[in-house]
Design a protein around this nucleic acid. Sequence first.
DNA 1: TTGCGTGCAAACGCTTTGCATATTA
DNA 2: TAATATGCAAAGCGTTTGCACGCAA
Lengths: 146, 146
Amino acid sequence: MSVSQNNGERLSREQAVELLDRHGISPTEQRIEIASLLFARHQHLSAEQILAQLSRQASRVSKATVYNTLKLFAETGLVREVIIEPTKRFYDSNLNPHHHLFFTDSGRLEDVPPAQVDIAGLPTLASGVEVVGVDVVIRVATRKPS
Amino acid sequence: MSVSQNNGERLSREQAVELLDRHGISPTEQRIEIASLLFARHQHLSAEQILAQLSRQASRVSKATVYNTLKLFAETGLVREVIIEPTKRFYDSNLNPHHHLFFTDSGRLEDVPPAQVDIAGLPTLASGVEVVGVDVVIRVATRKPS
DNA sequence: TTGCGTGCAAACGCTTTGCATATTA
DNA sequence: TAATATGCAAAGCGTTTGCACGCAA
């Protein structure tokens, strides 16, 4: 069940603060904690996973604050929210354009470089309507021996 | 709030039964009801909406049966499950390959012909891993007057 | 009668909310 | 000190589950 074991890797405090500042988010202790964990590397974490990893590292951040913070991060574009399973949201620390490979068996999520999937065009939209995101999810399964 | 008002349109009973048979699903009354409603035309409905429309038409199908049935339909490939919002699942009666346009303001979901969005390639997959679906969701919003 | 399908209500899991307390500017 | 953020527990919401009943082969 342990998909991503973060062994305490963290972004430095200064880098985390700078990241928050750049997005106009006041850098409170808890936000710094969450940001430095999430941005330690490119990864996809759920609120639950973040909560678990923080408490494992003796950082006590409440459930409500984790949810509030992730919502705030998503709204300001600090993280990308990924909707793949109806049961939980993932937060993606990779801000570069990319797609996702989802392993339905394990629930694992992997990035796919945009170069590997070319989107040739988009439908014509009514004026006043703008694209806020294009999500490409390739769902894969381990072939079962029939 | 009324996104799709189904004014009693239905697939004929025979057509619904044939559809179920073709997918190896034993045609019970409730399954026929749900199929004839869902396949009346290409649409995206949630369990909740189906439940509401059925009860409006005096067809009493329980919540559990609606959920069980939609799950069964999705597993057998009779409908396509669409995950766009983390809060609810949509069931798409359009079985032809296509993509989705999602209006974040209204929650409305619209089909996009595959010709308008070309996916040029897919990443190389490990052997034993097969693609079970490729979902492309274009999220759009009404531009706010800044 | 044996097994599958249905219905009800209770349980579940993730997320949100209300409100008191603490922290920040 | 005024505004914002945090923490806790309770509530919310879509979905699933347990189990008794019903129906068809």
